[in-house]
Each structure stands twice: as structure tokens, then as C-alpha cells.
Design a protein around this nucleic acid. Structure first.
Length: 818
RNA sequence: GUCGGAGUGGCGGAAUUAGGUAGACGCGCUAGGUUGAGGGCCUAGUCCCCUUCACGGGGGGUGGGGGUUCAAGUCCCCCCUCCGACACCA
């Protein structure tokens, strides 16, 4: 009788053997001429043990490198931890102990869980971003950006909790209030560090054509985030002072429809102009409100809100004087912080005009709509049409006329074409402890001075005070910040901000290529040999920021001549999330399911197969639905593994001849699984293996052999259920080396087709009969068969067959009339 | 509001790349068998409706409506619903 499938016995056994055999080490042997494959998974954040999201992501992320390795690639599949960040610091505050220990403990636990799951990581490349040996190079890279003028400081608002006297990250602001004490958060201006990612906006856009295999939505999200828009900068004049104020518009063709002018409330000219216009009293509350609202929820502003400043602007195209307003619907952060308002053709301007009883003038007559009366309009007109009331431009097609109008503005010296991006520079300072310190020293005479490279890393002090209140822990530390200026030797202070953790994660994939390298963040030849990454796997939640930042870093490194390519990840796969009952799993909802107990009970292979078989890899998995909400139910894939063991056992035990149909099915399965793996279709790959298993069972029960099928099945299973496949391959099938170093089975295209096939006979497109035919049947024979079918004849009745469609060997369709 | 994705059995999902048997595979459920017991195991059945003692036969069916085609889940047009991202970007 066949042996029982017992994961708890075989998994620890093979885990130990693989570690001993060094099965998953990437080869750096210069004589190794296999093609390389760099499989990268987004590295985890060590907050506790691995969760279901990790189980899903890494189950897929591990399948691909295993498959490639068997296909003959020299695979690098590294792992590390994104170990700086807020959760560790929060835990430190709560427990009154430094974040290092908590972080380390979680990383060890996650590492053990990864091992238990059988992940094919090359552990010799392991890294952690909070390790001084890592953040030394994060700081070094920051200084290269600084040297190039790509890192700079400027004033910028932060979230400030007046009770805790501390800066809050956006995630710590819940509905405008401090996450801890509930106090309403205020805006405060601080001098902060930025990376000049806006210099790379156009390249980040242009190079998207190198992203050959990206989810469409990620491309779209990044494109929208960068937000390129083409328009014109136009100069208006303030009538009362003669000063010139620029605006940005995408619709210069509507300049003749401008009936008022609006400043952002926090525009630098507003206070002065309000004073001049005698409206300071009315404007002050608006400015105050803008100041006190937290950064997070300031979008709640009312479109109709705004105040007349008491001054006027002159429209450069027709000399008209128009009233000037300040309103929160205009943003200081985009364009010039001032706009021309065209209520007839912009919905926001329209709403504002109606609320403030301002005139509306139509300057684009919509095609075929006839005369429009502004008084009866209910919404702005955004249609294409013909320019009217626009001086010499009357009759031009709009918006096609934009180019013409812009050229005219330029000739007249009143404006010029301009491209605007929505992308802002990357604010990277954090007034926090648990991050890489910014390696800058502020000297009263020399200004911002870089810490010399040979003094890196600037290490975090181990004895910082994490409790909230006052300045950040680094600023508050009694001695840490006091140093002498590296340039002039005078007393100076360190920068006490740390870097955004997105900086750490913008280059970790380079470091994997040169583990332990001591003369730089990485060795160029290592990186150029392994990169770009062959396949990147991770969650959509990083579709914008992480990917954009990593792409930006790579371009800067390219410009610094440190790498030979401009895109780090041409191929990206986003796995879905694991949810529960339609909602994300969370502590507060009490619906968290942990993967490790599942692994303990059913085995790592079962956990992996559950994830991979649940549905398409990109789709969310609703745990409540796929588990039947019954934690004791034996997973279907676990039963299947049991059946696989029993068929392989039985196939080994018999010396009966394997029928040709079994050989053909095996070849077809190899072909199908291979194709599915190429396209991340794990669920259908598994179903094909299940079909093979079922057929093997039938054949064996009928006294036939299935040895070849058993060999293939063990190999096909290897990327999905590595432990079970190994047990079958070595113990049951008797091979003396690992299935994971065996060569991926090939298939003979001549054998992937069935010898006979079910041909469908249709009458008028409806299925009427089926016939088992030779796969090589010719059209004449197929047609004869169809004509001879009693059922088909009955369906035709006394009507005339006017057309016969033959698609050998699958189908014949008889088309009738009458 | 804009952009993106998706609607198929009781459930997860196949088939959409290339129009050609809709519901593969699995879960659940039903019946039968099997083990001393067991979170079991094996076999068969399982889209809906009508018809037949039965074998069988007929009709309908992939969110709704229209179209192209010998043939549409798949292609085209319109509409509805759900999910996700960005949300005053001038």
C-alpha cells in the first residue's frame, strides 16, 4: 500500500539537506556560462512574524527562480529587510527600549519562518537597512546626491502636534488629529532636505518604454503621479501697482474669457495686495485657516470660498481690468500659485463665479450648439468648438488653436509655452531616530558641510531618549550632535534629521549584487553583470513611490557613471492581497489569519499551493471564501499532494507498460505548465498537474504503467511544492541528487497533441452531435461524418443546407435556410 | 469628478492571447462503498428549466440592451454595478 503524505516528517528533513548542499547559492564562478536570472522580491518590513501577505507574495516569488534554475539559469534570489522605520520606533517608545533589539528579534523570526517555508534564498547576500554596514552606504549615496546639487534644503510645512511637541509623519495623523493624544495637528514650517527628483521628471516618463513587462495600472499610476501637462505661462499685471504676476494655464486659447484672477491664499503677494486693497481683515482668517489645517486633510476646502482683495489685474490680451481674489481652491504648490479664471470653460471657476456673482463670458462656441447665454448656463463648457469674442482669433478651432495662441503670446512678449509637472521634489528628512542620519554638519562659517566619506557611517547613538516631547531624539541627545567642522575645525552641529526609509529601499537591490563589499555601495561589474533585475515581485502598494524613487536613484547612479543602465526593473509582477470577508486583515477588525500556524499544521507546501491555486496571482485572495471559514478543514491541495504521493508510489511499484495516451498527456502537461509558469499562471498550472494526477490514477487502476508521468510530475511540482517534489524525486523515484538541480522536463511537440479528438457537429451554430475522430482527419472525411450524423440530419430536417463550415479536426457547422 | 481593472454555478475560478463543445481544476453539497476509530479515504453525481419509468430528448444560460458573424463569455457600440488609484493640478 502507498505511504502516507506527512509534511511534518519530510519538510524539516529536506530543509536541512538543502542548507548543507548549498543548493540556492548564486554562482559567481567566472567559468559558469549559464545565463543569469536575478529574481527580486520586495523585501519585508520586520514588524512581527511573517503575515499572510508575505506568504502570498513569496510563494509566487519563489516559484519563478526555482523554475528558472531548473531551466538552466544561474539564479540569484536574495533576501533582506527594510528594517528602519516608524513601527520599530513606536515599539521603542512603548517599551522604553531602543528599536535595535525589537527589530533584530523580528528579523530572526522572519528568517526562521522563511527557512521553514522552504524559500530558495541565497542567505549569503542577506542585508538589513538598519545595519551600520548598510546605512554607511546610504549616507555615502546621499553625499553623492549632495555633491551634484540633487540634495538641498528648503522650508517646508510639517505636521506638528502641539501637545506632544513633536513632528508627526502623515501616517500618524488620523483625521487631522494626533494618533496618540487626539490633539488637532497644526502645520509648522521647518527647513528640510529634498531630493531634486523633479529634474528627472521627463526622463522618468520617457524611460517608461523600457518597462517592457509592467502591469498597465502601475504605468498609468506613475504617469498620473508625474502629471506632465503642456500649457503656457502668461504674464498679468496688477493695475494698482504695475507689478507683473505670472500664471500657468493649459488653455491659453481661453484667455479672452478671463473675468477674474485668483491667488492661492498663501501666495507671497496676497498679504501685501490685501493691505493695499483695504481687505486685510477679510483675508486674514483665510490665511490663518490655511496655516492651521494639517497637511493631511486640507483638501476639504469649499470651492466657493474666497475673498476679493480690493485690487485688479490687467489681462495682457485685451487690457481688461479684472478683480483679484484669494481662494483656497488655488494651490500654491502647482503652477505659479495664481490663476486666470475662465468661468465659462472651467468648472471650478464657474462655481466660484456663480457664488461671487462674477461675469461669465463664452469664448469657445461648442460645435453645433448655437448661441449660448451665460446667464442660463448650468455648468462650464469643456467641449471642442470655435473661438469667439477673442479678437483676431475668432473662428479658430479650439483647442487646436492653442499652439497658435501660444506663439502669438511669445511674439508679443506676454508669455511662452511651458511644461508643468505635478511631481514634487522628494522630502526626505524625518525628525525621527530610527533611520539613517543625514551625514551633514552645519558649521556657522562654512554652512552645510558633508561628513567626509572616511568618517562614515554616522552612527546612531545607542543611548538616545525615545520618549516624545521637544525635539527629535537625535536633537535632544546631550552630546551626539556636537562635533567640529571638517573644513575649518570650528564648533559645529550635526544635522539631526534622519532619512525617509524610501531612501534605504531605493538601492538595496544593487547591494545584493556585492554583499559585504567594502569600497563602495556596490561593485560596478557585479551590478552590470546581474542587473537589470530579471523579475521583480511585490505589492501594488509600492506602485508609485518605491518604484519611482528606485527608478530615480538608478538614473542618478547612471549619470554618476556608477551603473550601465537606466531602469532597474524592466519586469514587474504585482501579487494580490490576502483579505478576509472583503476587507483587509487588521488587528482592529480581529480578522487576522497567520500563515505559520498553517505551515505547522499542514506543511509549507500546502500553504504555498493554497496561495498559488486560489486564483490568478495578481488577484486578491479572500481567505474567508477559499477556506470556507473553517480552520479545521483539510485544504484541497493537501489532499491532492496525498494523491500525488499515492500515484507516484504506485507508478514505481508496477512494471506495466505506460500507454501512449499517458505519454501524450504527460507531454501536454509539461508544455502547459511551462507556458503557465512563463506567464505567472500558477493556478492553471496546478490544475493541469491535477488532471495528470487523475489520469495516472485511472491508468494505474486499469493495470497500466505511469512511470514517465511520475518522473515528470515530480519535476513539474518542484517549483510549487519544493519539499514534496524532493521527497518524491529522491526517496520514491530514487534519484541521488536534488530535483531542484534537475533539468526542467522538455516536451516533444509531436506528442503534445491527442491522437484522437472529439469533433463537434453543429447545425446553425448549435451543438447537435459529437464524433471521436483521428486528429489528422481531412476536411472531406469530417464533412462526410457530419452529413452522416443522424442527430445532425434530424436537426436539419427538410431545410436546405446552404453552407458547410469545416474546421478540422475540431468542428463542422452545417448552415441551413428555410 | 478623472484614470485604471473587473462582472461567468452555492464558492475560488477555467475558457478571453488567436471567436469554434461554457463551467476545466478544486471547494462545498448529494448518494453509495470502505476503515476499530479518525481533521478520513475511494467511486459516482452536481448550471437552470421542461420532458421521459428509464436510455434519451428539447429549450435557456457568462451584469443589461443592441450590433458584426455560419458561430460571440471572447470582437464593436450604449447602459448598469462593483473594486482600486489619484482626487480642487488651472
Amino acid at each position: 500500500m502507498s505511504r502516507r503524505y506527512d509534511a511534518s516528517e519530510i519538510e524539516p528533513k529536506w530543509q536541512a539537506v538543502w542548507a548543507e548542499e548549498g543548493l540556492y547559492l548564486a554562482s559567481e564562478d567566472p567559468d559558469d556560462d549559464r545565463p543569469r536570472f536575478y529574481a527580486l522580491d520586495m523585501f519585508p518590513y520586520p514588524s512581527g512574524d511573517l503575515h499572510m501577505g508575505h506568504a502570498e507574495a513569496f510563494s509566487g516569488g519563489d516559484t519563478i527562480p526555482r523554475f528558472r534554475s531548473m531551466q538552466g539559469y544561474n539564479v540569484m534570489h536574495p533576501i533582506g529587510w527594510d528594517s528602519f522605520g516608524l513601527p520599530a520606533e513606536n515599539a521603542a517608545i512603548k517599551r522604553g527600549v531602543p528599536p535595535q533589539g525589537w527589530t533584530q528579534q523580528n528579523m530572526e523570526q522572519q528568517a526562521a519562518s522563511f527557512q521553514r517555508m522552504g524559500m530558495s534564498f541565497d542567505w549569503t547576500r542577506r542585508l538589513a537597512t538598519s545595519d551600520p554596514e548598510y546605512y554607511r552606504w546610504t549616507q555615502w549615496l546621499f553625499l553623492r546626491f549632495f555633491d551634484k546639487g540633487l540634495a538641498y534644503r528648503k522650508n517646508s510645512p510639517v505636521n506638528w502636534c502641539p501637545k506632544d511637541q513633536t513632528v508627526l509623519a502623515n501616517e500618524q495623523v488620523i483625521q487631522g488629529a494626533c494618533e496618540r493624544c487626539g490633539t488637532m495637528v497644526e502645520r509648522r514650517d521647518l527647513t528640510q532636505w529634498f531630493f531634486k527628483i523633479t529634474d528627472y521628471a521627463q526622463r522618468l516618463l520617457d524611460d517608461m518604454d523600457q518597462l517592457v513587462d509592467y502591469p498597465e495600472r502601475v504605468i498609468t499610476m506613475q504617469r498620473n503621479w508625474i502629471g506632465r501637462s503642456e500649457g503656457a505661462r502668461v504674464t498679468f499685471t496688477i493695475a494698482e501697482t504695475g507689478e507683473e504676476i505670472d500664471i500657468y494655464t493649459t488653455r491659453p486659447d481661453t484667455l479672452w474669457g478671463v473675468t477674474f484672477f485668483v491667488f492661492a491664499v498663501d501666495h507671497p503677494a496676497v498679504e501685501r495686495l490685501a493691505e493695499l486693497g483695504g481687505t486685510s481683515k477679510q483675508v486674514a482668517p483665510l490665511r490663518e485657516k490655511a496655516r492651521s489645517t494639517s497637511l493631511v486633510d486640507r483638501e476639504a476646502a469649499d470651492t466657493k470660498e474666497g475673498v476679493f482683495l480690493g485690487v485688479h489685474a490687467v489681462n495682457p490680451v485685451n487690457g481688461e481690468q479684472i478683480p483679484v481674489y484669494a481662494a483656497p481652491y488655488v494651490l500654491m504648490g502647482y503652477g505659479t500659485g495664481a490663476i486666470m479664471a475662465v468661468p465659462a470653460h472651467d468648472q471650478r471657476d464657474f462655481d466660484f463665479a456663480r457664488a461671487h456673482d462674477l461675469p461669465i463670458r463664452v469664448v469657445v462656441a461648442p460645435d453645433g450648439a448655437g448661441e449660448i447665454d451665460p446667464a442660463t448656463m448650468t455648468e462650464a463648457l469643456s467641449h471642442e468648438g470655435v473661438m469667439v469674442n477673442s479678437g483676431s482669433f475668432d473662428g479658430e478651432a479650439s483647442p487646436a488653436s492653442i499652439t497658435k495662441v501660444t506663439a502669438w503670446l511669445e511674439a508679443e512678449g506676454r508669455g511662452h509655452a511651458e511644461v508643468n509637472f505635478r511631481l514634487r521634489d522628494w522630502l526626505l528628512s524625518r525628525q525621527r531616530y530610527w533611520g539613517a542620519p543625514i551625514p551633514i554638519i552645519h558649521c556657522p562659517t562654512c554652512g552645510e558641510v558633508a561628513v567626509p566619506d572616511d568618517q562614515l557611517p554616522v552612527e546612531l547613538p545607542a543611548d538616545a531618549d525615545f520618549q516624545l516631547g521637544g525635539e527629535s531624539p537625535l536633537a535632544r541627545h546631550p552630546t551626539w550632535k556636537h562635533v567640529t567642522c571638517p573644513t575649518c575645525g570650528a564648533e559645529a552641529v550635526r544635522d539631526t534629521d534622519t532619512m525617509d526609509t524610501f531612501v534605504d529601499s531605493s538601492w538595496y537591490f544593487f547591494r545584493y549584487c556585492s554583499p559585504g563589499y567594502d569600497d563602495g555601495p556596490f561593485r560596478r561589474e557585479d551590478v552590470d553583470r546581474w542587473m537589470p533585475v530579471s523579475q521583480y515581485t511585490g505589492g501594488v502598494e509600492h506602485a508609485i513611490l518605491h518604484l519611482l524613487y528606485a527608478r530615480f536613484f538608478t538614473k542618478v547612479l547612471y549619470d554618476l557613471d556608477m551603473v550601465g543602465f537606466t531602469e532597474p526593473f524592466p519586469k514587474l509582477m504585482n501579487q494580490g492581497q490576502v483579505i478576509y470577508g472583503g476587507a483587509s486583515m487588521s488587528k482592529s477588525k480581529g480578522n487576522i489569519v497567520e500563515p505559520m500556524p498553517l505551515v505547522e499544521r499542514w506543511g509549507a507546501d500546502t500553504m504555498r499551493l493554497i496561495m498559488l491555486f486560489a486564483g490568478p496571482f495578481e488577484d486578491d485572495i479572500d481567505w474567508k471564501l477559499i477556506s470556507g471559514d473553517d480552520p479545521d478543514r483539510r485544504p484541497g491541495v493537501h489532499s491532492w499532494l496525498g494523491r500525488v504521493f499515492s500515484v507516484v508510489d504506485d507508478a514505481v511499484a508496477t512494471d506495466a507498460v505506460e500507454p501512449e495516451s499517458m505519454v501524450r498527456l504527460t507531454h501536454r502537461t509539461i508544455e502547459g505548465v511551462t507556458e503557465d509558469l512563463e506567464r505567472f499562471r500558477f493556478n492553471t498550472a496546478i490544475s493541469k498537474m491535477q488532471v495528470l494526477t487523475n489520469e495516472m490514477r485511472s491508468a494505474l487502476d486499469a493495470g497500466e504503467g505511469a512511470r514517465g508521468a511520475a518522473e515528470a510530475l515530480a519535476q513539474l511540482l518542484a517549483p510549487f511544492a519544493p519539499y514534496a517534489a524532493e521527497e518524491l524525486w529522491r526517496t520514491v523515484l530514487g534519484h541521488d541528487s536534488s530535483v531542484h538541480v534537475s533539468t526542467w522536463p522538455g516536451f516533444d511537440p509531436a506528442l503534445t497533441t491527442q491522437a484522437t479528438i472529439t469533433m463537434v457537429i453543429q447545425v446553425d451554430g448549435k451543438l447537435r452531435d459529437k464524433a471521436e475522430v483521428d486528429a489528422g482527419i481531412d476536411e472531406t472525411a469530417a464533412l462526410e461524418l457530419a452529413r452522416a450524423s443522424d442527430k445532425a440530419r434530424a436537426a436539419v430536417g427538410d431545410r436546405e443546407v446552404v453552407k458547410e463550415i469545416v474546421r478540422v479536426p475540431k468542428l463542422v457547422n452545417l448552415v441551413t435556410r428555410g
